[in-house]
């Protein structure tokens, strides 16, 4: 494959994510970057992994999961616990992190299978209900188990790893998450999944094993929620179950919807943007005003969903969507580009 034919556009998001990672990694290395920036990057990588993995379920499978924070919670607690247990023998280096990562994410995936198996056989809104229940069960169990197991209400302390480069881990894992998601969607299986979303009965009729595919996607999504959980436990030093409540699942959902359901890059951008805004607003809005932020997200969520889905706004949408507007604005430019393409093709033919 020559460099000229290489489709750069397809890999833009990897390049951007990788680029950010490299730049800040270098800045960190020379000591320019400070803790607040690395901490922001950690949180962005966690949020982005959560959003991209949830977007698989919501955007591509067309099912709603309200327990994403629950799977994250499983990853955070089990990964964190394993890391704490291994700390005396392995120290708190990368080896410990990887073992914790493996345990936490696989445990989350396992719970994904357990929850998905009964819920995904049913149609409609059952996944939303069951995942919601699951999230609450996990939270309440972890909090109420004896304190020596998971720290009880005080939370679980995890090893204090050198955090300078944790965000690089986060970004590498985000790249892995992107690669898995995008390759899945572009594959033959991805088309099957999208056909399930668009018309489940028709998909079933063409011989697609709907339940198997749903379970498959849901498990992968839970796996990455677990990955995010482990990252979180290393990023925060303590894991508190109260943080993984229903509201957190909703916040991830807001990122997915805001980014445009079915758009991986949209989820990515929305996750980064919301995380950044959250941190900025945290210092600006204090006390009860902090809720203004939630109010804002709620209003945006409702407006976006109505705007994009209301049957009555169909005409309006067709008239004023981004594509037609940009086509109008860049009409001339576009034809020029097309001609250039055609010219190039002719040239290669000769």
């Amino acid at each position: 494959m020559s460099l000229k034919n290489f489709n750069w556009k397809k890999y833009t998001n990897y390049l951007v994510v990788g680029g950010v990672m490299l730049i800040f990694g270098l800045l960190s290395l020379v000591g320019v970057s400070d803790a607040s920036i690395t901490s922001l990057l950690e949180r962005i990588s966690i949020a982005a992994i959560l959003a991209v993995s949830l977007s698989m379920v919501v955007g591509f499978l067309g099912e709603l999961s309200l327990g994403h924070a629950g799977f994250m919670c499983v990853g955070a607690y089990l990964g964190g616990k394993v890391a704490a247990l291994l700390e005396p023998s392995l120290g708190n280096g990368p080896l410990n992190f990887f073992i914790a990562l493996l345990v936490g994410s696989l445990a989350a995936a396992l719970f994904g299978v357990i929850v998905g198996l009964p819920a995904l056989r049913l149609r409609g809104d059952y996944l939303a209900i069951v995942t919601l229940a699951f999230g609450e069960i996990v939270r309440s169990v972890v909090m109420n188990l004896p304190a020596k197991l998971f720290g009880g209400t005080l939370g679980l302390s995890t090893p204090r790893m050198d955090k300078k480069y944790l965000f690089i881990m986060g970004f590498l894992l985000l790249l892995a998450c992107l690669a898995v998601t995008q390759n899945l969607i572009k594959s033959k299986h991805g088309r099957a999944i999208i056909s399930i979303r668009d018309n489940e009965i028709a998909a079933r009729a063409t011989g697609i094993d709907v339940t198997k595919y749903k379970l498959f996607v849901f498990t992968i999504s839970s796996f990455f929620a677990g990955v995010a959980g482990v990252l979180y436990s290393f990023s925060m030093y303590t894991v508190q179950s109260a943080n993984f409540d229903y509201n957190y699942s909703i916040e991830i959902l807001v990122m997915v919807v805001l980014g445009g359901m079915g758009s991986i890059n949209g989820s990515l951008i929305a996750a980064a943007l919301i995380t950044f805004l959250n941190i900025q607003l945290q210092t600006m809005l204090t006390g009860d005003l902090a809720v203004l932020q939630n109010l804002f997200y709620a209003v945006i969520l409702i407006l976006i969903v109505i705007y994009r889905n209301a049957p009555g706004l169909k005409g309006f949408r067709e008239k004023y969507n981004m594509r037609t507007i940009s086509e109008k604005l860049f009409k001339k430019k576009k034809t020029v580009v097309e001609n250039a393409d055609a010219g190039e093709e002719e040239a290669t033919n000769e």
């Binding site: 919501v58 067309g62 099912e63 709603l64 309200l66 809104d125 939303a128 509201n247 909703i250 959902l253 919807v257 359901m261 939630n294 997200y297 709620a298 209003v299 969520l301 409702i302 969903v305 109505i306 994009r308 889905n309």
Partner: peptide, 12 residues
């Protein structure tokens, strides 16, 4: 799904 998400937004 759209209706469900709107309802969640309304709750929020």
């Amino acid at each position: 799904l759209a209706v469900l998400i709107t309802a969640i937004g309304m709750s929020y």
